[in-house]
Amino acid sequence: MGIPCHYALFELQPAFDLDLDMLSSRYRELARKVHPDRFADGSELEQRRAVEESANLNEAYQTLKSPSRRARYLLALQGQDMPLEATVQDPEFLLQQMQWREELEELQDEADVAGVMTFKARLKAALQDINEAFSRTWQDPAHREEAERLVRRMQFLDKLSQEVRLLEERLDD
């Protein structure tokens, strides 16, 4: 692999539970070294490399910062990318998904700002549970299927949170 592992870049061991404060403080240290501003009077080659290295660093940081992207990345590090389409069935969660969506629609219809706040808090708690479950399972290849299922749940919650954000914006009008 031409590009070093995101974890190695930050001198970290591959793990799901991360000290995010430490991650961001290492990020700032590294950004200081590679940012194009450091090479403002450098050669064109140096400048181009600085843009590339900074872009890499930013990508690595964004990947590790987000739990769902980090989880997906960890599974890929085990040697196999997660397939784009779901091969793992998750009927239990499907029911939950439908329930959340219905609630979100109701909140929208009623323009219920306070309701959105509690809804957000519940999503956050649900995400917390999923993260903890992933943290317990991901390292065991025997539980790969379960781990992929959990990543998909995280991704769904990301998307749903995005929709909540859009709703908040609409209600702000």
Partner: peptide, 8 residues
């Protein structure tokens, strides 16, 4: 709100 420089 993605930090620059960035390549994707």
């Amino acid at each position: 709100n993605t930090t620059i420089p960035v390549a994707r």
